[in-house]
């Protein structure tokens, strides 16, 4: 469905601070794939997600969605195909707007904005049900400003926003990393549930190797701007954390796995 062909990206190109972030990423994402992405800091995981979302333009390579070249579409133009949840819980919602208005914005992700109402009469009831299904205890606080919610609640709302208008691809960039363990587990459960129930195609960056193994049907490992390991199905189901650590140590040629990789 989505194809990355030899994607290159260097930040600060042409200066002494030039930093190659992606050095030829090739990846084909199939319909219904739920891919977990792991790798050390600076491996290019978040950059890859941002390239798919269109936040950064590619230096080289090509991105195809359902056979159509979308390399030159910007972030706004690609938004109609993609739902995103960021690492920072503040980034996915507008603090000064109500839950209702935020959801209303998300509902219109795939269409052109007009002078019709930002939230129509029938929408609050519909959203109340959705929020209730998420079990956040927010269904009677829909007019509350999102800025008054906790990080976990905001992240859950962002997840709802990213998926309420079925995206072709759901991009999750370490979306539970900034949450406390209990909240993170809850948001992750919600994520799994919604991906399963709606049969979504998703790409999830995580630093937690157990989650990476437990969730999804496919796992990729990145290192120094490349995909160095891509495993799915039976083989993935049998993976252990030790396997991954070994794989990582091999890839980094003896450099020891960094602290964040070891967590989990």
């Amino acid at each position: 469905m989505l194809k990355l062909i030899d994607i290159q990206k260097t930040f600060n190109a042409g200066t002494v601070n030039a930093k190659p972030a992606l050095r030829g990423v090739n990846l084909t994402i199939n319909d219904g794939d739920f891919i977990t992405v792991i790798g050390g800091n600076g491996a290019g995981k978040s950059t890859m997600l941002n390239m798919i979302a269109g936040t950064y333009a590619c230096d080289g390579g090509r991105i195809e969605l359902d056979g159509r070249n979308i390399t030159d579409l910007n972030e706004v133009q690609r938004a109609r195909y993609m739902g995103r949840v960021f690492q920072d819980p503040m980034m996915g919602t507008a603090a000064s707007m109500s839950i209702l208005e935020n959801l209303g914005m998300a509902r219109r992700r795939t269409k052109r904005r007009t002078l019709a109402w930002g939230v129509r009469k029938n929408e609050p009831e519909e959203y109340r049900q959705m929020v209730k299904d998420f079990d956040l205890g927010l269904e009677n606080r829909l007019t509350t400003k999102v800025g008054l919610l906790s990080g976990g609640q905001r992240q859950a709302i962002t997840l709802l926003m990213a998926t309420m208008q079925r995206p072709k691809l759901l991009l999750l960039d370490e979306h539970t990393a900034a949450l406390d363990p209990k909240t993170a587990a809850k948001v992750l459960d919600l994520t799994e549930k919604i991906i399963r129930e709606d049969n979504l195609t998703a790409l999830m960056v995580t630093h937690n190797m157990r989650d990476a193994i437990r969730l999804g049907n496919r796992l990729i490992m990145m290192h120094e701007g490349r995909v160095i390991y891509d495993v799915s199905g039976e083989e993935k189901a049998k993976l252990t954390v030790e396997d991954l650590l070994k794989k990582f140590t091999e890839a980094s040629k003896g450099e020891f796995a960094n602290d964040r990789m070891l967590l989990g």
Binding site: R84, F86, M91, T114, W117, G118
Partner: peptide
């Protein structure tokens, strides 16, 4: 006006341009 889709998009642009762009708003 600020209750319409376009008006709401302007408010979202001011409040959080990242979110606005991720939701397809030409900020």
């Amino acid at each position: 006006f600020f209750g319409t889709e376009i008006g709401t998009s302007i408010r979202a642009t001011g409040a959080n341009p990242h979110m606005a762009r991720a939701l397809g708003v030409p900020t």
